[in-house]
């Protein structure tokens, strides 16, 4: 049913991703679909990396580690952004389109009062992509 599953990852908050990563890996196995981890990094140093090169290396290491641990092959794709807190809403639909993803599995928070006025990244993505979006809470 699905061939390419896109999994947005925030390397700074890996601890909050485990459920989404589990779901994505299980769906990948079920549909024999390719997993693609997508990350966005700024050009300035962050908690995760000193520069985009280092970020790419860390995302790649994360991908290798995850695919080994879960026994399902995965690749990764990284974007740089001047303002990732905001730009991620533009980059995610673009990433899904570029890799030809047909399912997105991403971690999301439980909606609160402000989500009525300010949509979450997952909600925004669902409004701007042809792929199916699975939000994991």
């Amino acid at each position: 049913m699905y061939k390419k599953i896109v999994v947005p990852v925030d390397l700074e908050h890996i601890d909050k991703l485990s459920k989404a990563l589990d779901v994505a890996a299980n769906l990948g196995k079920l549909f024999e679909a390719e997993l693609i981890y997508v990350g966005v990094t700024p050009t300035v140093p962050t908690t995760v990396a000193h520069n985009p090169d280092e970020y790419v290396a860390k995302l790649k290491a994360f991908t290798t580690s995850e695919s080994g641990r879960r026994g399902h092959p995965a690749t990764s794709k990284a974007f740089t952004s001047h303002d990732p807190s905001i730009d991620i809403d533009q980059y995610l639909p673009r990433a899904v389109a570029e890799v030809g993803g047909d399912l997105v599995v991403m971690a999301s928070h439980v909606p609160g009062f402000f989500d009525r006025f300010w949509p979450s990244h997952g909600e925004n993505l669902a409004s701007h992509t042809n792929a199916s979006v699975f939000l994991v809470r």
């Binding site: 985009p52 790419v56 990764s76 794709k77 990284a78 740089t80």
Partner: peptide, 20 residues
């Protein structure tokens, strides 16, 4: 696309030597 072959408009090419 894997991280091994980043597109030109995505991750910039290797940044070269810096003195971290």
């Amino acid at each position: 696309m894997s991280v091994d072959t980043p597109a030109e408009d995505l991750i910039p090419p290797p940044e070269g030597d810096v003195d971290l």
